[in-house]
Every structure is written in C-alpha cells, then in structure tokens.
C-alpha cells in the first residue's frame, strides 16, 4: 500500500483519482481507503486547504470520529454538510420528517426534487456526493430516550439541531446518561444561540428554565436562510474542537447572536 501511495502521491498529497484507484486496487470501501491513506501519512488532496489548521494526525482523528446529528432541517443540513467536508468519518443523521415547501427558504438539503421525501435520506444522498469517504447512517426517526442508547453506541458527540424545546431537553438528558458531549444551537428569525454541554452539566435546563411548553419566539418570527447557516457553522466549530480536544469551548457559556443589530454576546451560565 505504501508503495502505491508513494508512486501516486504528489509529495504527501494524494489526488482524488488516485484515492479511488487505491480503494479499488486494495478492495477497500472509500471510508476504509481514507483511513489507510491517512494512517500511512498521506493526505487526500481534498483536505489540502485544511492542513494549515488541522495536522495530519488531527485529520485522521476526524476520520475516526462519529457525530450524531439530531435533526436534518435548517441547522442539521448545514451541520452535516460541514462535517462531511471536514472529513468526519461517520455521521448518524436523524430526522423523522419529510421535506415540505416551507423548508425550501433555508434548509440546505431541501431541494424541489426532495419535496415529500425523508430528510435523513436526503442527507445520505448529499454526503455521498460531497465526500464518499464519509459513512452516513440515515435514521428516519427522532433521537429519543428509548432509541438513543442503541443509536449512540458509536457516537463521540451529539449535535442538537432539532426544532422543539421538549426534544432538546430530552436529548440533553439522554446525552448526560450516555456521557456524551452535546453541542446545542437554536434559532428564531434574526436571533440565535449556541452552547456546549459536557457530561454532568445542566446547561439546557438552565437555558430553558422558564419554558412551560410550546415554541419559543421562532413561532412568531420564522427562520430565514442565513441564521441557520451561521449557527450551524458555530456548532460545527465547537464539535471539531471537542473531537480534537483543542481550543476553548462554550461550556457553561451561551453565545447569543442578534443579526438585526449585529451584536454578539457571550453570557456565563454559572453564578
């Protein structure tokens, strides 16, 4: 394998075509081939613009990581897209819903031809096009207390991209039980918030202390195209830092965005 890579790489960069030939020659899946390539110290060319900020061992670490994304709508579509482009090796995408016309204004995976089709399946189709080395497990169901322990067995962290407070609190409690970090994002109109919940923290219970059922202000404001893209990107930045154990996390802090006034606040949640 090393000989093939040395003969076909440009320095340590392996082109897309050579990567496919490598997989075929050694009868490996795209995912397995990528693992071998990175382990042998070569970098798939698609990641060359990552390399000034992510080292080869870090790129391999992402390849060996599994992230569960609860929700494949406004936030989830962008989260999945970015995780796949980063080269996170396994993504578990969960959503019980199908696409409807009102998703088209903002959800990356919502295209005219996907109307009426399951969101989780659209995530699988998209990731297969974007990065075949990423394994996407599509689950057409919500992440809940009863299915969570089984579905999250291989996950290293969970991204909260759902659209109801009840579901968020249930996922928060599930992650605490399963000892998994959770990256929370929520949006409403021009506004958004992001925080990271590490096992043992009760951040979502603090944020939603006053909630008594129903929706937040998103019920009156709706959601435009740009807020989910932005909040999802912040969530992915947190997810990458957790996977690579680097940087400063929004643990016990919530970052709030007001895009109407272009103001960002970071608020401590511990008194």
């Amino acid at each position: 394998m090393r000989d093939f890579l040395q003969n076909n790489a440009c320095g340590d960069l392996l082109g897309n075509e050579a990567q496919q030939q490598f997989a075929m020659k050694f009868e490996l899946s795209a995912a397995a081939a990528e693992g071998e390539i990175l382990t042998l110290g070569f970098l798939p060319a698609r990641y060359q613009r990552n390399r000034k900020m992510l080292s080869l061992p870090q790129q391999l670490k992402l390849h060996q990581s599994c992230v569960a994304v609860a929700g494949c709508g406004g936030l989830g579509g962008y989260v999945i897209e970015e995780l796949a482009r980063l080269g996170v090796g396994k993504i578990i995408a969960l959503d019980p819903d199908i696409f409807e016309a009102h998703n088209l204004n903002r959800q990356l995976l919502a295209t005219s031809d996907q109307l009426g089709k399951p969101k989780a399946e659209a995530a699988a189709q998209r990731v297969a096009l974007v990065n075949p080395a990423v394994e996407l497990i599509a689950i057409q169901a919500a992440l809940e207390t009863n299915n969570g322990p089984q579905l999250l067995k291989t996950a290293h962290l969970v991204v909260d991209a759902v659209d109801s407070v009840a579901a968020r609190l249930e996922i928060g409690s599930l992650c605490r039980q399963q000892n998994l970090p959770l990256v929370h994002g929520a949006i409403a109109g021009w506004y958004g918030q992001v925080t990271t919940v590490l096992p043992g923290d009760r951040t979502l219970e603090t944020l939603y202390r006053h909630w008594q059922g129903g929706k937040g202000i998103e019920a009156e404001l709706g959601n435009p195209a740009f807020t989910p893209a932005l909040v999802a990107s912040l969530q992915v930045a947190e997810a990458v830092k957790i996977l690579l154990a680097t940087g400063d996390l929004l643990q016990n802090r919530v970052l709030t965005l007001d895009l109407l006034r272009m103001s960002v606040e970071t608020i401590d949640l511990i008194n």
Partner: peptide, 17 residues
C-alpha cells in the same frame, strides 16, 4: 411573559428571577 423568558443576564452572568 414569563413562559417566553430565555436568558436573564446581570454583569454577563445568567441569573434567576
């Protein structure tokens, strides 16, 4: 409306009612 309250912040910290 109390049921629509999110973060309550004093001196950059979340506080109780």
């Amino acid at each position: 409306p109390r049921e629509k309250l999110g973060i309550l912040m004093v001196n950059s910290r979340h506080v109780q009612l």
